[in-house]
Simulated scan of single mutants.
Amino acid sequence: MAYEVKGVVARSKGAPVTVETIIVPDPGPGEAVVDVQACGVCHTDLHYREGGINDEYPFLLGHEAAGVVAAVGEGVTNVAVGDFVILNWRAVCGECRACRKGQLQYCFNTHNATQKMTLADGTELSPALGIGAFVEKTLVHSGQCTKVDPAAPATAAGLLGCGVMAGVGAAMNTGAVQRGESVAVFGCGGVGDAAIAGAKLAGASTIIAVDIDDRKLEWARGMGATHTVNSRETDPVEAIKAHTGGFGVDVAIDAVGHPKVFEQAFYARDLAGRVVLVGVPTPDMQLTLPLIEVFGRGGAVKSSWYGDCLPSRDFPMLIDLYLQGRFDLDAFVSETIGIDDVETAFEKMHEGEVLRSVVVF
């Protein structure tokens, strides 16, 4: 029997989102239905609404979610009814060329549910990142469910589903920050602050936060930044070198996704340092760097996909660290809201007033 629930839909480019009746089918083979308890409002959802991902409207928005498994389909063994899970958009296939090389964090063929959720009139919905979680129940592939300790509140746990994991992973996985190293993070929104928290977890001794907003720089200090630089007032490259004996940092992380910011990150690193791009650029952006500088500085220039995470490995670990008091996920939750408040949350996010608004069901 299908479920009839309420969810947040983007019907057309730029139009305000609406709360509508969603039909969620019973799970088929390999699928699961999850009672969503909380879902963060991520900038990616706004990208979907604005047509920045694709034009497969209408979209069922929401993807940073945690909840409880309500039903499973035939053949599902990794989760059971009643399990507390975080939803992810990297349900590894185990068969693609990345998986065959043992690099599951780069899986090129991640699983989604086969069936479609629909509007009441039968119109098929495109779920954001294959999840669609601004809804009371959602249908996903069972591999998109990662079981974690239910002692963690859904408001905190769900944030690992996207932005926080992307930032933490950019530092710990892609950037491979080591104890005693120096790190600079450009852009102190949710992903950038998560990168700062990840660098702190990894044992970085110097963590430099860069932004144009003093309010965000104050948030960054709360996440573990040892120094802050307002790049509207100060040349960030020179400021970073001044904090690192004139050398630059071991790891520079661009959490903005803009050519000018990436160029600053590139020049702010030490010789043989690593540059990590985790901010998402727009398709029209172009980057020009002197090739001799790319060669002469050595090191590595890397893109970070979802923090190069493996949900089955990283989500439980980070939840354990949270429950031990070593990783403050609650600090990312600026406010909790209802399902009718998503449009207002987009406005607050655009204005930089919040790290994360979290929809609670």
Rank of each mutant, 00 (worst) to 15 (best):
A91M: 08
Q178W: 11
L60I: 10
G338I: 13
L289H: 06
G14I: 05
R11T: 10
L104N: 08
H350L: 12
D308I: 07
V256T: 02
L61D: 01
A331E: 03
E124A: 14
V33T: 13
S126Y: 11
M172K: 13
L61V: 07
R297Q: 15
L87K: 09
V140L: 02
E136M: 06
V8G: 02
H227C: 06
Y267Q: 12
T18E: 12
A194S: 15
M317E: 15
G273C: 07
P27Y: 11
G246P: 08
T234H: 00
D328A: 14
S303D: 00
V92A: 12
A156V: 09
A239Q: 04
D341F: 08
V164P: 06
R11E: 11
A272C: 11
F262N: 00
V280C: 13
V276D: 05
F346H: 10
E74F: 09
E64I: 07
G51M: 10
L329M: 08
L271S: 12
I319H: 03
E50C: 11
H258T: 00
M223T: 01
K147D: 02
M349Q: 14
A252N: 01
C93K: 07
M172C: 14
R356P: 02
F315Q: 07
G132R: 06
V359E: 03
V19K: 04
G338E: 10
V168F: 12
G257A: 09
I337P: 09
V333R: 04
N88Q: 09
G169Y: 05
L160E: 01
A171E: 02
A157L: 12
V81Q: 14
E50I: 02
I22P: 01
H227E: 14
A220R: 03
F346S: 01
R221L: 10
L159E: 02
A171P: 04
L60E: 05
E238T: 15
E95M: 11
T138F: 08
E136A: 12
A70N: 07
V69S: 03
G299D: 04
E56K: 15
C145E: 02
D235C: 03
D328S: 08
Y306G: 01
D149W: 00
T155M: 01
D235W: 03
R232Y: 06
S12Y: 06
A300M: 13
G248S: 08
S142K: 10
L160G: 03
Y48H: 13
R215Q: 14
S303R: 12
V85C: 03
D193Q: 14
A171F: 07
C96I: 12
A80C: 00
S126R: 14
V36M: 05
L323G: 01
A65N: 03
G102Y: 00
R100T: 11
I292K: 09
G279A: 09
A156H: 12
G82R: 07
A197G: 08
F361D: 00
G296W: 05
N109E: 12
H141A: 14
H63V: 09
